[in-house]
Design a protein around this nucleic acid. Structure first.
Length: 276
DNA sequence: ATGGTAGGCCTCCTA
Protein backbone atom coordinates (compact mmCIF):
# COMPACT_ATOMS: atom_id res chain seq x y z
CA UNK A 1 0.00 0.00 0.00
CA UNK A 2 1.30 3.38 -1.00
CA UNK A 3 0.25 4.94 2.32
CA UNK A 4 2.71 2.75 4.23
CA UNK A 5 5.58 4.49 2.54
CA UNK A 6 4.21 8.01 2.48
CA UNK A 7 4.09 10.32 -0.52
CA UNK A 8 6.84 10.09 -3.09
CA UNK A 9 9.03 13.19 -3.01
CA UNK A 10 10.39 13.89 -6.49
CA UNK A 11 14.04 14.86 -6.75
CA UNK A 12 14.38 18.26 -8.35
CA UNK A 13 17.35 20.22 -9.65
CA UNK A 14 16.70 23.97 -9.67
CA UNK A 15 18.92 26.54 -11.39
CA UNK A 16 18.96 30.30 -11.79
CA UNK A 17 20.61 32.21 -14.60
CA UNK A 18 20.66 35.78 -15.88
CA UNK A 19 20.96 34.95 -19.57
CA UNK A 20 21.15 38.54 -20.96
CA UNK A 21 18.65 37.95 -23.80
CA UNK A 22 16.96 34.58 -24.19
CA UNK A 23 16.77 34.91 -27.96
CA UNK A 24 20.50 35.48 -28.43
CA UNK A 25 21.30 32.80 -25.79
CA UNK A 26 18.82 30.10 -26.80
CA UNK A 27 21.32 27.49 -27.97
CA UNK A 28 23.49 27.94 -24.89
CA UNK A 29 20.50 27.70 -22.54
CA UNK A 30 19.20 24.52 -24.15
CA UNK A 31 22.69 23.01 -24.08
CA UNK A 32 22.99 23.90 -20.39
CA UNK A 33 19.63 22.29 -19.57
CA UNK A 34 20.73 19.13 -21.37
CA UNK A 35 24.14 18.76 -19.75
CA UNK A 36 23.14 19.90 -16.25
CA UNK A 37 19.96 17.86 -15.88
CA UNK A 38 18.18 20.95 -14.62
CA UNK A 39 14.46 20.45 -14.00
CA UNK A 40 13.53 24.04 -13.23
CA UNK A 41 15.38 27.07 -14.58
CA UNK A 42 14.67 30.55 -13.25
CA UNK A 43 15.71 32.94 -16.02
CA UNK A 44 16.45 36.66 -15.72
CA UNK A 45 16.99 39.37 -18.33
CA UNK A 46 15.08 37.63 -21.08
CA UNK A 47 14.94 41.02 -22.87
CA UNK A 48 11.80 40.20 -24.77
CA UNK A 49 8.04 40.40 -24.68
CA UNK A 50 6.15 37.29 -23.71
CA UNK A 51 5.07 36.58 -27.29
CA UNK A 52 8.72 36.75 -28.43
CA UNK A 53 9.94 34.09 -25.98
CA UNK A 54 11.07 30.95 -27.86
CA UNK A 55 8.63 28.64 -26.10
CA UNK A 56 8.55 26.08 -28.93
CA UNK A 57 12.26 25.29 -28.58
CA UNK A 58 11.80 24.73 -24.84
CA UNK A 59 8.72 22.57 -25.43
CA UNK A 60 10.71 20.43 -27.83
CA UNK A 61 13.28 19.93 -25.08
CA UNK A 62 10.49 18.97 -22.66
CA UNK A 63 10.13 22.21 -20.73
CA UNK A 64 7.03 24.26 -20.11
CA UNK A 65 7.71 28.00 -19.94
CA UNK A 66 6.03 30.89 -18.21
CA UNK A 67 7.45 34.30 -19.08
CA UNK A 68 6.94 37.90 -18.05
CA UNK A 69 8.13 40.80 -20.17
CA UNK A 70 6.70 43.69 -22.12
CA UNK A 71 9.63 45.34 -23.89
CA UNK A 72 13.35 44.92 -24.52
CA UNK A 73 14.40 45.50 -20.91
CA UNK A 74 14.34 43.23 -17.87
CA UNK A 75 12.09 40.20 -18.34
CA UNK A 76 11.94 37.02 -16.24
CA UNK A 77 10.83 33.48 -16.96
CA UNK A 78 10.65 29.99 -15.50
CA UNK A 79 11.19 26.85 -17.56
CA UNK A 80 10.17 23.61 -15.90
CA UNK A 81 9.70 19.94 -16.71
CA UNK A 82 8.04 19.26 -13.34
CA UNK A 83 5.08 21.60 -13.75
CA UNK A 84 4.43 25.35 -13.54
CA UNK A 85 1.41 26.00 -11.34
CA UNK A 86 -0.03 29.05 -9.58
CA UNK A 87 1.92 31.62 -11.57
CA UNK A 88 2.43 35.08 -10.02
CA UNK A 89 3.81 37.95 -12.12
CA UNK A 90 4.76 40.13 -9.16
CA UNK A 91 4.87 40.01 -5.38
CA UNK A 92 2.24 41.81 -3.34
CA UNK A 93 4.12 44.95 -2.38
CA UNK A 94 6.32 45.17 -5.47
CA UNK A 95 7.10 48.85 -6.08
CA UNK A 96 6.42 50.61 -9.37
CA UNK A 97 9.22 52.58 -11.01
CA UNK A 98 9.10 55.29 -13.63
CA UNK A 99 5.94 56.91 -14.82
CA UNK A 100 3.04 55.04 -13.30
CA UNK A 101 0.51 57.37 -14.91
CA UNK A 102 1.71 56.26 -18.35
CA UNK A 103 2.77 52.70 -17.58
CA UNK A 104 1.11 51.26 -14.48
CA UNK A 105 2.59 47.79 -14.94
CA UNK A 106 5.27 46.77 -12.51
CA UNK A 107 8.57 46.00 -14.15
CA UNK A 108 9.03 42.38 -15.23
CA UNK A 109 11.49 41.54 -12.45
CA UNK A 110 9.69 38.91 -10.36
CA UNK A 111 7.90 35.78 -11.43
CA UNK A 112 6.81 32.80 -9.36
CA UNK A 113 5.53 29.33 -10.13
CA UNK A 114 5.11 26.16 -8.12
CA UNK A 115 7.25 23.50 -9.74
CA UNK A 116 7.43 19.97 -8.34
CA UNK A 117 6.20 21.20 -4.97
CA UNK A 118 8.67 24.08 -4.72
CA UNK A 119 7.60 27.72 -4.92
CA UNK A 120 10.26 29.07 -7.28
CA UNK A 121 10.82 32.81 -7.71
CA UNK A 122 12.85 34.18 -10.61
CA UNK A 123 14.08 37.57 -9.39
CA UNK A 124 15.89 40.35 -11.18
CA UNK A 125 16.58 42.89 -8.45
CA UNK A 126 16.85 46.48 -9.75
CA UNK A 127 20.44 47.50 -10.45
CA UNK A 128 20.32 50.86 -8.69
CA UNK A 129 22.49 52.66 -11.26
CA UNK A 130 24.09 55.15 -8.79
CA UNK A 131 23.74 56.03 -5.11
CA UNK A 132 22.13 59.39 -5.94
CA UNK A 133 19.82 57.98 -8.64
CA UNK A 134 16.09 57.44 -7.95
CA UNK A 135 16.66 53.89 -9.15
CA UNK A 136 18.75 53.26 -6.04
CA UNK A 137 15.89 54.13 -3.66
CA UNK A 138 13.66 51.96 -5.82
CA UNK A 139 16.10 49.07 -5.39
CA UNK A 140 16.05 49.37 -1.59
CA UNK A 141 12.24 49.65 -1.55
CA UNK A 142 12.00 46.64 -3.85
CA UNK A 143 14.16 44.46 -1.60
CA UNK A 144 12.33 45.57 1.56
CA UNK A 145 8.94 44.85 -0.01
CA UNK A 146 10.08 41.41 -1.17
CA UNK A 147 11.42 40.62 2.29
CA UNK A 148 8.15 41.66 3.92
CA UNK A 149 6.12 39.54 1.52
CA UNK A 150 8.47 36.55 1.81
CA UNK A 151 8.30 36.72 5.62
CA UNK A 152 4.51 36.56 5.34
CA UNK A 153 4.60 33.42 3.22
CA UNK A 154 6.48 31.61 5.97
CA UNK A 155 4.18 32.92 8.69
CA UNK A 156 1.23 31.58 6.71
CA UNK A 157 2.92 28.22 6.03
CA UNK A 158 6.12 27.50 8.00
CA UNK A 159 6.60 24.27 6.05
CA UNK A 160 6.51 25.90 2.62
CA UNK A 161 9.32 25.13 0.21
CA UNK A 162 10.27 28.52 -1.22
CA UNK A 163 13.26 29.41 -3.40
CA UNK A 164 14.10 33.09 -3.90
CA UNK A 165 16.56 32.77 -6.76
CA UNK A 166 18.03 35.21 -9.19
CA UNK A 167 20.27 38.17 -9.86
CA UNK A 168 20.24 40.14 -6.61
CA UNK A 169 22.55 42.91 -7.81
CA UNK A 170 24.13 43.06 -4.35
CA UNK A 171 27.71 42.19 -3.42
CA UNK A 172 27.13 40.97 0.16
CA UNK A 173 30.77 40.70 1.26
CA UNK A 174 34.03 42.39 0.41
CA UNK A 175 35.34 39.00 -0.69
CA UNK A 176 32.54 38.68 -3.25
CA UNK A 177 34.42 41.04 -5.60
CA UNK A 178 37.97 41.04 -6.93
CA UNK A 179 38.74 44.42 -5.32
CA UNK A 180 36.09 46.09 -3.21
CA UNK A 181 37.91 49.42 -3.39
CA UNK A 182 36.94 49.56 -7.07
CA UNK A 183 33.31 49.83 -5.88
CA UNK A 184 33.77 52.65 -3.41
CA UNK A 185 30.93 55.12 -3.82
CA UNK A 186 29.07 52.80 -6.17
CA UNK A 187 26.01 50.61 -5.88
CA UNK A 188 26.02 46.89 -4.90
CA UNK A 189 28.30 47.31 -1.87
CA UNK A 190 26.58 50.03 0.17
CA UNK A 191 25.64 49.30 3.78
CA UNK A 192 21.97 49.83 2.94
CA UNK A 193 22.02 47.31 0.09
CA UNK A 194 23.90 44.76 2.17
CA UNK A 195 21.45 45.23 5.04
CA UNK A 196 18.49 44.82 2.67
CA UNK A 197 20.01 41.59 1.37
CA UNK A 198 20.92 40.23 4.81
CA UNK A 199 17.39 40.96 6.11
CA UNK A 200 16.09 37.78 4.47
CA UNK A 201 17.91 35.71 7.12
CA UNK A 202 15.91 37.02 10.10
CA UNK A 203 12.83 36.66 7.87
CA UNK A 204 13.46 32.90 7.99
CA UNK A 205 15.48 32.24 4.83
CA UNK A 206 18.95 30.75 4.36
CA UNK A 207 21.21 31.76 1.48
CA UNK A 208 22.05 28.22 0.42
CA UNK A 209 24.63 28.97 -2.27
CA UNK A 210 26.91 30.50 0.37
CA UNK A 211 26.24 27.57 2.66
CA UNK A 212 27.30 25.04 0.05
CA UNK A 213 29.92 27.07 -1.87
CA UNK A 214 31.65 29.11 0.86
CA UNK A 215 34.94 29.79 -0.94
CA UNK A 216 35.85 33.47 -1.11
CA UNK A 217 36.23 35.16 -4.49
CA UNK A 218 33.80 32.75 -6.10
CA UNK A 219 31.99 34.76 -8.74
CA UNK A 220 28.81 34.44 -10.78
CA UNK A 221 29.24 37.51 -13.03
CA UNK A 222 32.06 39.02 -15.04
CA UNK A 223 31.66 42.25 -16.99
CA UNK A 224 32.00 42.01 -20.76
CA UNK A 225 34.49 44.89 -20.74
CA UNK A 226 38.20 45.09 -20.04
CA UNK A 227 38.83 41.34 -20.21
CA UNK A 228 37.12 40.90 -16.85
CA UNK A 229 36.70 37.13 -17.21
CA UNK A 230 40.28 36.26 -18.25
CA UNK A 231 41.47 38.49 -15.42
CA UNK A 232 38.88 36.96 -13.07
CA UNK A 233 37.53 40.36 -12.10
CA UNK A 234 34.10 39.10 -11.13
CA UNK A 235 31.24 39.62 -8.74
CA UNK A 236 29.14 37.24 -6.70
CA UNK A 237 25.64 38.61 -7.14
CA UNK A 238 23.45 35.59 -8.02
CA UNK A 239 21.99 33.85 -4.98
CA UNK A 240 19.26 31.56 -3.71
CA UNK A 241 17.50 32.14 -0.43
CA UNK A 242 15.64 29.02 0.70
CA UNK A 243 12.90 28.56 3.27
CA UNK A 244 13.74 26.12 6.10
CA UNK A 245 11.89 23.20 4.49
CA UNK A 246 13.69 23.75 1.20
CA UNK A 247 17.10 24.52 2.71
CA UNK A 248 16.94 21.14 4.45
CA UNK A 249 16.65 19.47 1.04
CA UNK A 250 19.58 21.22 -0.62
CA UNK A 251 22.31 18.61 -0.95
CA UNK A 252 24.70 20.67 -3.05
CA UNK A 253 25.19 23.80 -5.12
CA UNK A 254 27.21 24.22 -8.31
CA UNK A 255 28.27 27.46 -9.95
CA UNK A 256 28.76 26.69 -13.64
CA UNK A 257 31.78 28.91 -14.23
CA UNK A 258 32.63 27.27 -17.55
CA UNK A 259 29.45 28.74 -19.01
CA UNK A 260 31.21 32.15 -19.06
CA UNK A 261 33.82 30.84 -21.53
CA UNK A 262 33.86 31.34 -25.25
CA UNK A 263 31.99 33.45 -27.72
CA UNK A 264 28.34 34.18 -27.08
CA UNK A 265 28.40 33.76 -23.28
CA UNK A 266 26.10 35.65 -20.93
CA UNK A 267 27.92 37.86 -18.45
CA UNK A 268 26.36 35.70 -15.68
CA UNK A 269 26.71 31.94 -15.16
CA UNK A 270 24.10 29.45 -13.93
CA UNK A 271 23.83 28.53 -10.26
CA UNK A 272 22.41 25.05 -9.70
CA UNK A 273 20.76 23.70 -6.54
CA UNK A 274 20.69 19.94 -6.09
CA UNK A 275 17.77 18.81 -3.94
CA UNK A 276 17.87 15.52 -2.05
C1' DA B 1 45.29 56.51 -23.82
C1' DT B 2 39.51 59.28 -20.15
C1' DG B 3 38.62 54.13 -24.07
C1' DG B 4 37.34 49.14 -23.74
C1' DT B 5 31.51 45.18 -24.54
C1' DA B 6 27.11 43.34 -25.42
C1' DG B 7 22.09 43.26 -25.48
C1' DG B 8 17.85 45.56 -27.32
C1' DC B 9 12.47 48.25 -30.64
C1' DC B 10 19.98 50.13 -32.11
C1' DT B 11 23.07 57.18 -33.93
C1' DC B 12 20.65 55.73 -27.61
C1' DC B 13 19.46 53.28 -23.23
C1' DT B 14 20.76 49.73 -19.91
C1' DA B 15 23.91 46.93 -17.57
Amino acid sequence: MQALYGPRVPRVRIATWNVNSIRSRLDRVLAFLDRSGTDVLAIQETKCREEQFPVAAFAEAGYEVVASGYHQWNGVAIASRVGVDDVARSFAGQPVFGKPDQDPRREARALAATCGGVRVWSLYVPHGRALDDPHYAYKLDWLAALRADAAGWLEADPGAQVALTGDWNVIPRDTDVWDVSAFEGRTHVSAAERAAFAAFEPAGYTEVTREHVPAEHTYTYWDYQQLAFPRNKGLRIDFAYASPALAARVAGVRIDRDERRGKGASDHVPVVLELA
